[in-house]
Design a protein around this nucleic acid. Sequence first.
RNA 1: GCUGGAGUAGCUCAGUUGGCAGAGCACGUCCUUGGUAAGGACGGGGUCACGAGUUCAAUUCUCGUCUCCAGCUCCA
Length: 586
Amino acid sequence: MDLSTLRHSCSHVLAQAVKELWPEVKLAIGPAIEDGFYYDFDKEGPFSDEDLLAIEEKMRQIIAKNEPFLREELDKAQAIKLFKQLKEDYKVQLIQDLAGQAISIYKTGQAFLDLCRGPHIKSTGEIKVFKLLSVAGAYWHGIETNPMLQRIYGTCFNSQKELDEYLKNLEEAKSRDHRKLGPQLGFFDIYHEQAGAGLVFYHPKGALLRTIIEDYERKEHLKRGYQIVITPHIMDAALWKTSGHYDYYKENMYTFATEGKEFVLKPMNCPGHILIYKSKTRSYKDLPIRLFELGTVYRREKAGVLHGLLRVRGFTQDDAHVFCLPEQLPDEIKKIIDFVFETMKVFGFNQWGVELSTRPEKYIGSEEDWQKATEALENALKDKGIPYEINQGDGAFYGPKIDIKLKDALKRTWQCATIQCDFALPKRFDLVYIDTDGKEKQPIMLHRVLLGSLERFIGALIEHYKGELPLWLSPCQVLLIPLKETVISYAQTVKSKLEDNNIRVELDTRNETLNKKIREAELNKIPYCLIIGEREAKQEQVSVRKKGSGQRLWQEEAKPRPAGQQGAVALDKFIEELTNRIKEHK
RNA sequence: GCUGGAGUAGCUCAGUUGGCAGAGCACGUCCUUGGUAAGGACGGGGUCACGAGUUCAAUUCUCGUCUCCAGCUCCA
């Protein structure tokens, strides 16, 4: 059975049930969506949890009656008249907006009819398992100034098993929530009330993780001919007026006046890099110039959109601007695309979706430039044989862009990398280089981020790995657990030896039992524990326990060694093995 | 910003139909010196988000503010 048809029909049953319980409610729309369906209602007062149960009960009755879905066609005038009689104002509006004269409606039994293009299942009895999930507000037609309707979300499947799996998946996603895991693992926290919403505090472990990511990025950028720059956090508002951001995003910028001047807390890094470009006369021989900055920016996002690390008010982008000659453009774009994919793979993401976003309604620059820029991006994707979707009208106001969304272990997508082609800002800022003929020409500018915002990316990492970061990213790679005080000095030797080999190590000398320390190490997702007792000290060994020991395996089996327990090895051998794994980004 | 739900110890949560505020974990002290997922005893810890109002009395009721959560809208 086609799920989207089934779900669409189920949304009709939902609407029918609601109309039976609250005849005065007006219907809006009720489509199938990716994981289920919803229906929007105009009702005085909210639907409560009890209401949802009552609606589910009513739906079950309708399904039990096995009423057929019947299609009828009316002409437009008839349809409008019919829905006016039913006082379904939203449906009347929908019909008025429909092109063509033939309007199809679906009747379910005698009791219920709805404007609908179909298709539907034959009868309500075909719905086997369904569940209403939640209620939320939603604007009519999704437009902010329209009335707010009540949306009921639900889902249905062909079998109970599939529904259970879906619900289990929801739970699984919940257990990976970075907002929960992040603070729990000591990565970060947000002090909403004391410091402000959307402002992230990295605790030591998270700051270490971020430093590891940053170090990796700096190294890779230098390798690829980027130059690292650092620009101020506040700049004269005039710069943002020139760039055009002031007009488009003033509401979302933190501004303040001092010494008779207006300043802006930078919401993006472009103008800073542009000033550096403009600081001297550039020759065609200098291009491409690639400026990279781990640039921290602030944007006054509306209160309701903030979400953990994914949507914050202060964040750091791995931002770069490439200034190049027109003939260098295709190659530069391709290099960036390669850089993006290579970086994602290193961090353990192997699936992604690519979108090309074209000119929006509000834009700056000429149509001709837009076309050139869009073609350049599209050709790069085509040449590399990368499948992509077109996202009509979703580009930035100054240029089209390629968005690369990575997919995590649960197949959820995360917006990270973006490559934007820009003819507009070079014009506005009057950027030039001296060409072979000694004349001034305008360079093309590419904006790009790989990971996007480090905050969001760290959120994605946490959820992708369920907090169990790969060895090379783990803030603490090895925990040393000495069994008693007499072996602490040997443990300290082990610690400095590991540190000499650039292994991040902690020594746990607290007065707690071995079991407790191991339990905590597991909960803290530390990749390796080294247990150090008399035996190890005597033979320059360490007893290795790898994370994820197969929890309490030993209780069920006869007496095998738990999976994580690797036994004793010579310290040098352990160091060698670990160093190799770290080098390979495992 | 909009609709709805919520805010009690560092964390997870009980509880009070308006009358001195509770547990487990965490934390501190002491005992315990251990071989692969929680050793034991005792102890400290709260403006019940914030501000007004009603009341003899408000953590509890009312209003406002802040913040979080589920969505909507937005995301240079």
